[in-house]
Simulated assay, not measured.
Amino acid sequence: MSSTLKDHRDHRVLDQLGGPLGLMYSVVPVIVFVVADVFLPLPLTIGVSLAAGVALFVIRLARRERVVSAIGSLAGVAVAAGIVAWTGSSRDFFVLGIWGSLAGFVLTAVSVLVRRPVTGVIWNAVHGGRHAWRTDRGVLRAHDLATGAVALVFGARFVIQQWLYLEENTGGLGIAHLVLGTPLTVLAVAAVVWAIRRSAVRMTTAATPASTSDLKGTAS
């Protein structure tokens, strides 16, 4: 397999986790909502946040980004705004993300405990599911660490934001979303990238002797 094809597939793995622009798209509606909530009544705050979500949706379509991702981002803002409109509490703008973090923590933590770290499962699926990656202790350990890092990010987000939610601190929730968002995500993605590269190197190295012996057997 050529290095160009490997790089392309590795980028597809990273796309599942969100790119740099995806990080920006996730924080803009939050900033707009928190700032608007300080100066405007709740109905107008909801309207402004929805307008920001629609604007980002249009921008993403104009940039020819994936329609599914653009729709997903807009739907997230719409659902969050809908929850606020239903409950009448601005702090509920964050409730979807809080419980999403809990779900992410449970999924990633359990995957490590059952020895099927989710980053490894995704990597192998993107590469056709043909690698016996769990039999390589180095690769499995790398994905244990990468998935564990992702689990820690999800766990930290849930614990801190849930505490702020119970304290009814909407401004604090907005700050926590920013602080625990991009910086921690970058660290987690760095761990995932390291695991992906380690997997590619070790799996390629492991496959080479087998291919060579097959050729020898065919020649004889």
Rank of each mutant, 00 (worst) to 15 (best):
residue 29 P to G: 02
residue 170 T to G: 00
residue 217 G to M: 05
residue 150 V to F: 02
residue 63 R to M: 15
residue 105 F to L: 14
residue 9 R to Y: 04
residue 78 A to F: 03
residue 74 L to E: 03
residue 131 H to F: 06
residue 116 R to V: 01
residue 62 A to K: 04
residue 19 G to V: 11
residue 137 R to H: 07
residue 126 V to H: 04
residue 9 R to N: 08
residue 44 L to Y: 09
residue 171 G to R: 04
residue 104 G to S: 05
residue 24 M to T: 10
residue 45 T to D: 13
residue 94 F to G: 09
residue 75 A to Q: 02
residue 106 V to H: 05
residue 57 F to G: 12
residue 209 P to G: 08
residue 72 G to D: 01
residue 6 K to F: 10
residue 81 A to C: 15
residue 13 V to N: 14
residue 60 R to F: 04
residue 8 H to W: 09
residue 50 L to T: 05
residue 40 L to E: 09
residue 99 W to N: 01
residue 202 R to Y: 00
residue 102 L to M: 03
residue 216 K to Q: 15
residue 72 G to L: 13
residue 138 G to K: 07
residue 195 A to T: 11
residue 214 D to C: 04
residue 168 E to H: 15
residue 19 G to M: 00
residue 30 V to K: 09
residue 141 R to W: 13
residue 206 A to R: 09
residue 196 I to L: 08
residue 133 W to G: 01
residue 123 W to T: 10
residue 177 H to L: 00
residue 162 Q to P: 05
residue 55 A to W: 02
residue 168 E to A: 14
residue 199 S to R: 02
residue 76 G to N: 06
residue 129 G to T: 05
residue 146 A to H: 11
residue 193 V to I: 14
residue 90 S to P: 09
residue 61 L to C: 11
residue 57 F to D: 14
residue 30 V to C: 07
residue 3 S to G: 01
residue 135 T to A: 08
residue 182 T to R: 00
residue 131 H to A: 12
residue 165 Y to F: 12
residue 129 G to M: 01
residue 202 R to S: 05
residue 166 L to Q: 14
residue 44 L to N: 13
residue 114 V to M: 05
residue 162 Q to V: 03
residue 151 A to G: 05
residue 6 K to T: 12
residue 68 V to K: 08
residue 190 A to M: 11
residue 175 I to W: 07
residue 21 L to I: 12
residue 197 R to L: 07
residue 147 T to V: 01
residue 121 V to S: 03
residue 119 T to H: 06
residue 32 V to A: 15
residue 97 G to F: 00
residue 35 V to I: 15
residue 61 L to F: 11
residue 124 N to V: 04
residue 203 M to L: 13
residue 3 S to Y: 10
residue 50 L to V: 12
residue 195 A to P: 14
residue 88 G to Q: 14
residue 164 L to S: 02
residue 144 D to G: 00
residue 157 R to I: 06
residue 113 L to T: 13
residue 25 Y to I: 09
residue 190 A to I: 10
residue 33 F to M: 15
residue 163 W to G: 10
residue 154 F to R: 06
residue 83 I to E: 11
residue 60 R to C: 06
residue 152 L to C: 03
residue 28 V to Q: 02
residue 33 F to N: 07
residue 201 V to L: 11
residue 220 S to K: 01
residue 58 V to I: 15
residue 190 A to Y: 11
residue 121 V to W: 01
residue 159 V to R: 12
residue 11 H to S: 09
residue 181 G to I: 09
residue 142 A to P: 02
residue 92 D to L: 03
residue 200 A to Q: 10
residue 151 A to N: 06
residue 109 A to P: 12
residue 68 V to G: 02
residue 8 H to V: 12
residue 75 A to W: 04
residue 64 R to P: 09
residue 146 A to E: 12
residue 34 V to T: 15
residue 95 V to Y: 01
residue 96 L to S: 11
residue 204 T to S: 15
residue 74 L to I: 02
residue 97 G to Q: 02
residue 135 T to L: 08
residue 5 L to C: 04
residue 188 A to C: 03
residue 3 S to Q: 13
residue 24 M to Q: 08
